[in-house]
Design a protein around this nucleic acid. Structure first.
Lengths: 183, 183
DNA sequence: CTCGTTTGTGCAACTAGTTGCACAAACCCG
DNA sequence: CGGGTTTGTGCAACTAGTTGCACAAACGAG
């Protein structure tokens, strides 16, 4: 049950409309908590009903459709409560590792191309993160909030680095495997 | 839609009953595709209905309740198909990173204890993986299937190593932070 | 031998996330 | 100025995963 809290965080960082939130989920928050616009609108409705957020009063109420939301004190309190509460890590689910294990049994036919594709995706993601790091965390800035956000970004960078390296190793392993394994 | 394929893989490695599968998910497959016994029984039913697996004919059909399943050719074919098919990585969702980002906004009060707890969990998991590696992959064995399975285990080991290190860094960062951050 | 515990199988209801579609307003192009 | 694209909001139906419970057989201790 974290989507509402992801949204509260995003709205505290900056009040936004549904679509703006969607975009920010695509670029930033979504790197570790992805959501579609449908999910977001649904959740905005619930959060408003619960009195955690409210639509910003707009000057021309009827003209443009764009509704921006801001967090109310109750919402901030709920987010603080949730952040501090102890939570168990959610179970991992990784299809690629599963497929690799399956391929030890049914043969490696066909999986190699997809490993390459994933390697490429992870490389791109890594490049994107490094771009963000360069832009948002130049050496020297160290306000506490920056340090926390940087820490989060570094987790992303290091995870992508790991996958990139691991996939490279895996592909090397494939090069040495007798053709198409058991099956 | 990977649970059925996780089960097929497990059953190909060794025909099992529902409960045996559940245990194996807790110890091994579940490290990257966790499932509860309820999910497993439900899925066994579907797989049997689809003709992908069948209950092993048992000598005393009525006495002990334990039903073991084995994979049928159609099931193996389906698994091979799925393994080879190109798949997009599923979106990440990591609550801890989300909470850390939230704590940059609402304050770090209370989260540190949970970081410690997670660090401890990851250390244990890492130790468990290393135990398995020592037991199942002593230097010198390199049948192709072993190498693939070892690769998968290494991913687990390296991921836990990453989290352990990252959490250690994070906690250090906390030590240097002015008390309880913004809020 | 019987009564509590563990083993083993399973259903039902709920929650979270995904997919597919609808529809109005704004904008922009010929 | 009329018609296609983009922006923005949202509902409905479905799929996957979680939680809570039920119940029978086997096992083990007093």
């Amino acid at each position: 049950m974290s989507l509402p809290h992801a949204i509260l965080t995003a709205l505290l960082e900056k009040p936004s409309s549904g679509l703006e939130l969607t975009r920010r989920f695509d670029r930033s928050i979504g790197y570790f908590w992805s959501a579609t616009h449908q999910q977001i609108y649904r959740e905005l409705g619930k959060l408003e009903a619960d009195g955690h957020i409210r639509a910003l009063p707009t000057e021309q109420p009827a003209r443009g459709q764009k509704k921006s939301y801001e967090v109310l004190p109750a919402g901030r309190a709920e987010l603080a409560r949730w952040t501090a509460a102890s939570q168990d890590p959610r179970p991992h689910r990784d299809t690629l590792l599963l497929r690799l294990r399956a391929s030890a049994v049914v043969g490696t036919e066909g999986i190699e191309a997809d490993l390459r594709r994933h390697l490429d995706l992870h490389r791109r993601q890594l490049a994107e993160y490094e771009e963000i790091e360069k832009r948002d965390f130049p050496p020297g800035r160290d306000q506490p909030e920056d340090r926390l956000r940087h820490l989060v970004l570094r987790a992303g960078i290091e995870l992508e680095t790991f996958w990139t390296r691991w996939l490279t190793d895996a592909l090397e392993e494939f090069g040495e495997l007798p053709d198409s394994g058991p099956a």
